[in-house]
Design a protein around this nucleic acid. Structure first.
Lengths: 121, 121, 121, 121
DNA sequence: GTGGTCTAGACCACT
DNA sequence: GTGGTCTAGACCACT
């Protein structure tokens, strides 16, 4: 399920967070689904349990999962909504990126083509 | 000229690189213009000279500036072209970002509106 | 009767203890009333019997319930008195909390209003 | 400066968070003040650097401190405001606690006396 | 078994 | 020197 790239500049714990959120958006993980235990994922991915723990703690804090010591970790009811809303906030990042493309002399049509292409998939 | 945000998570040396490139794109710095010396910028911004040096070395490596020992640092002839071309490569980042917006259920029109807005400015 | 919140950070066995004490204070459970058996509650709430047992053992230790082997568990004669007295000890917790409100610049009137409101209900 | 109680049920990292916030409220730490480095505090308190790091990360996330790798950790401009506002939100906790005192038969005067006492200090 | 905390110690990039 | 990430491994309470 999870795919970790040890060569990546992105910390392992962030890769786990990102992929978990991705799975929720893609309906691979639904509300109240159990996600792998810290130890289980740790041995599957050959990653230290502390690193998994760090990822799960952050997901818990964000309201994506809830963790019950002794039982396991589960997807929150509102997980998908929370992730979608956070993503929407990132439209500002898009604005920033596009402003730089404009400065670099990339024309509007090139950018819009790129977007059309993705939404046609 | 340079604006350093000490609270930012972006390393100071990267902030200097980014702003220098920004100035070139905006024609604030043109080919063969002199940029502040390491010592000058170090004292103006209250930043360790090693940090400035690191930024300038990287700009040099990228072909954005050249240094004439005893005279100072200057913008390269091809600086603007190099920066623009590198930016174009970043269209892949845009694709990635837009794919995630699509997953999060943001519709195409919202994104295109955002782009139109920037190009009208 | 019992309402268990699996998403809560409070352990299930503590939730059971707290709610039992709450029921006694509110006269929903009176002296010598029978409370659900471990097995019964375990299946009603879909909770491991060990967890229920742990809660009941602690309530027994505190003198809130007593168990008659073969008959079941019952509320102690002195349960309400014991719980009330323990609560009174918690005035120190109130003092601590109020000290922090004072530090945070919340004025006395705001706090007293809040208390009046509750006692008027 | 920091006082850690190893016997306490409260995790060490939470004690550090709480005390840092306390120092800000009491104006012992002001905006842009440098707080002890991870390693420094680790050796002063004889606590593992990871534990300090965990506390500082959380303070950073809350906007109480900002950390600059290579420079250190500093109190945020808005730290005091953020902590005070968060404390104000906790009036709900007070309501909960007072409701329980009411149930336990503690009369209003006793509680108000307790509050008057603290505000007179 | 399950998550949460913590120690011990390494390595990295940034200053 | 400074914070950030990570491995290795222990111990605890809860289930």
């Amino acid at each position: 399920m999870f795919q970790i790239d040890n060569q990546s500049k992105i910390p392992v714990y962030e890769q786990i967070i990102k992929q978990t959120e991705e799975f929720v958006l893609k309906d691979i993980l639904a509300a109240n689904d159990k996600i792998p235990s810290v130890r289980n994922l740790s041995s599957t991915l050959s990653i230290n349990p502390n690193t998994i723990q760090k990822a799960y703690s952050e997901l818990d804090r964000r309201g994506i999962i809830y963790s019950s010591p002794g039982k396991g970790c589960f997807i929150c009811e509102q997980a998908k909504r929370i992730i979608s809303e956070k993503k929407a906030d990132n439209l500002k990042d898009l604005e920033l990126m596009v402003s730089e493309f404009k400065l670099a002399g990339i024309n509007k049509e090139q950018i819009i083509d790129c977007i059309e292409k993705i939404y046609q998939q």
